[in-house]
Measured scan of single mutants.
Amino acid sequence: NQASVVANQLIPINTALTLVMMRSEVVTPVGIPAEDIPRLVSMQVSRAVPLGTTLMPDMVKGYA
């Protein structure tokens, strides 16, 4: 089972991601792979992401 990136806190719209905002977790459906966490740092979210939400490619500007 592949771990995905999950929000560790509420991430407001247009916030630049930092390591403390993200954790890896095995979830369904699968989201952005956990190994991409270093690449996500400083990228902005395109919408508010609630705590515990799996990050999907369309939620991060410039990821897809």
Results as ranks from 00 to 15, higher is better:
62 G>S: 08
36 D>T: 07
48 A>L: 10
37 I>T: 08
31 G>Q: 02
18 T>R: 12
63 Y>H: 05
42 S>F: 07
55 L>R: 00
14 N>R: 05
45 V>W: 00
23 R>G: 07
15 T>H: 06
58 D>Y: 08
8 N>V: 08
40 L>H: 02
17 L>I: 13
13 I>S: 13
50 P>M: 07
56 M>C: 04
1 N>G: 09
48 A>T: 09
29 P>T: 06
57 P>K: 11
21 M>A: 06
15 T>P: 01
41 V>K: 05
6 V>F: 02
14 N>W: 12
57 P>V: 05
50 P>S: 10
38 P>C: 04
59 M>V: 10
4 S>Q: 01
1 N>F: 10
17 L>T: 00
14 N>F: 08
64 A>S: 14
57 P>L: 05
30 V>L: 11
31 G>P: 01
58 D>Q: 10
64 A>T: 15
3 A>E: 15
7 A>E: 00
37 I>M: 13
30 V>Q: 11
27 V>E: 02
31 G>W: 02
30 V>I: 13
16 A>D: 10
10 L>K: 10
14 N>C: 03
44 Q>H: 09
21 M>W: 02
10 L>P: 11
40 L>P: 00
56 M>L: 14
53 T>D: 09
21 M>C: 03
21 M>V: 04
45 V>E: 01
1 N>P: 15
38 P>T: 13
39 R>K: 10
14 N>V: 03
11 I>Y: 01
26 V>C: 05
9 Q>N: 07
50 P>R: 10
25 E>D: 09
29 P>K: 06
36 D>R: 07
47 R>F: 07
36 D>Y: 11
30 V>P: 14
16 A>K: 08
62 G>E: 09
5 V>T: 06
54 T>I: 08
20 V>K: 09
45 V>K: 00
24 S>H: 13
5 V>M: 02
18 T>L: 04
29 P>S: 04
51 L>H: 12
7 A>P: 02
37 I>K: 06
39 R>I: 11
57 P>N: 06
42 S>A: 15
60 V>A: 00
61 K>L: 12
6 V>K: 04
6 V>R: 04
43 M>T: 04
7 A>I: 07
47 R>N: 12
25 E>W: 09
62 G>M: 06
6 V>T: 07
5 V>L: 04
22 M>V: 08
49 V>A: 06
63 Y>T: 04
49 V>F: 03
31 G>T: 01
22 M>R: 00
26 V>T: 14
9 Q>M: 14
51 L>I: 14
26 V>N: 15
39 R>Q: 10
39 R>D: 15
53 T>I: 15
61 K>C: 04
25 E>Y: 06
25 E>M: 14
48 A>K: 14
40 L>K: 01
25 E>T: 10
52 G>E: 05
35 E>K: 06
18 T>F: 03
19 L>N: 08
38 P>Y: 09
49 V>I: 09
45 V>P: 02
47 R>G: 06
35 E>Q: 15
29 P>M: 05
23 R>V: 05
12 P>H: 07
28 T>L: 10
55 L>D: 01
24 S>P: 12
47 R>M: 13
29 P>N: 07
4 S>T: 06
47 R>Y: 08
11 I>L: 11
41 V>P: 02
36 D>S: 13
60 V>E: 01
33 P>F: 14
3 A>C: 05
56 M>V: 12
10 L>R: 11
40 L>E: 01
42 S>H: 08
58 D>T: 11
63 Y>K: 03
15 T>W: 05
49 V>N: 02
13 I>K: 12
40 L>V: 05
55 L>Q: 00
14 N>T: 05
62 G>V: 04
20 V>M: 15
62 G>F: 09
54 T>P: 10
44 Q>Y: 12
35 E>C: 04
12 P>C: 04
7 A>Y: 02
24 S>A: 15
48 A>H: 11
64 A>K: 04
63 Y>C: 03
17 L>Q: 00
6 V>P: 00
32 I>Y: 00
50 P>N: 12
2 Q>S: 12
11 I>H: 01
13 I>N: 10
45 V>H: 00
63 Y>S: 04
60 V>Q: 01
45 V>Y: 00
12 P>Y: 07
43 M>C: 04
56 M>N: 09
27 V>Q: 05
27 V>I: 08
38 P>I: 10
47 R>L: 13
60 V>K: 00
3 A>M: 10
38 P>G: 10
7 A>N: 01
24 S>I: 08
51 L>E: 13
20 V>L: 15
25 E>G: 10
15 T>G: 05
49 V>T: 07
11 I>R: 00
52 G>Q: 04
60 V>I: 07
27 V>Y: 03
28 T>F: 10
53 T>C: 04
5 V>F: 02
34 A>L: 04
33 P>E: 06
38 P>W: 09
58 D>F: 11
45 V>T: 15
10 L>V: 08
13 I>W: 08
43 M>Q: 10
31 G>F: 02
21 M>Y: 05
59 M>H: 10
3 A>T: 08
53 T>Y: 15
57 P>C: 04
23 R>Y: 05
25 E>I: 06
64 A>R: 03
15 T>R: 07
7 A>V: 09
34 A>G: 15
23 R>E: 05
30 V>F: 07
5 V>S: 03
58 D>I: 09
59 M>Q: 05
4 S>R: 02
10 L>H: 11
5 V>E: 01
55 L>P: 01
32 I>C: 03
36 D>K: 11
57 P>Y: 07
25 E>S: 11
22 M>T: 01
57 P>R: 07
54 T>H: 03
46 S>R: 13
19 L>Y: 11
63 Y>F: 15
11 I>D: 00
7 A>M: 05
47 R>T: 12
16 A>Y: 13
63 Y>G: 04
14 N>A: 10
20 V>R: 13
55 L>A: 01
19 L>H: 13
21 M>G: 03
39 R>F: 06
30 V>T: 15
24 S>Q: 12
64 A>I: 15
64 A>M: 15
31 G>I: 02
58 D>C: 05
32 I>F: 03
42 S>K: 10
27 V>L: 08
23 R>L: 06
56 M>P: 01
58 D>G: 11
64 A>Q: 15
32 I>G: 00
25 E>P: 01
51 L>P: 15
11 I>W: 02
33 P>L: 10
61 K>R: 14
10 L>I: 09
9 Q>H: 07
64 A>Y: 08
26 V>A: 13
17 L>N: 00
40 L>R: 01
35 E>V: 15
16 A>Q: 12
41 V>T: 07
52 G>Y: 04
4 S>E: 01
46 S>D: 11
43 M>V: 05
29 P>V: 05
29 P>Y: 04
22 M>E: 00
54 T>W: 02
15 T>E: 08
33 P>H: 09
63 Y>P: 04
33 P>M: 09
6 V>W: 02
5 V>Y: 00
48 A>R: 12
5 V>A: 14
33 P>Q: 06
28 T>D: 12
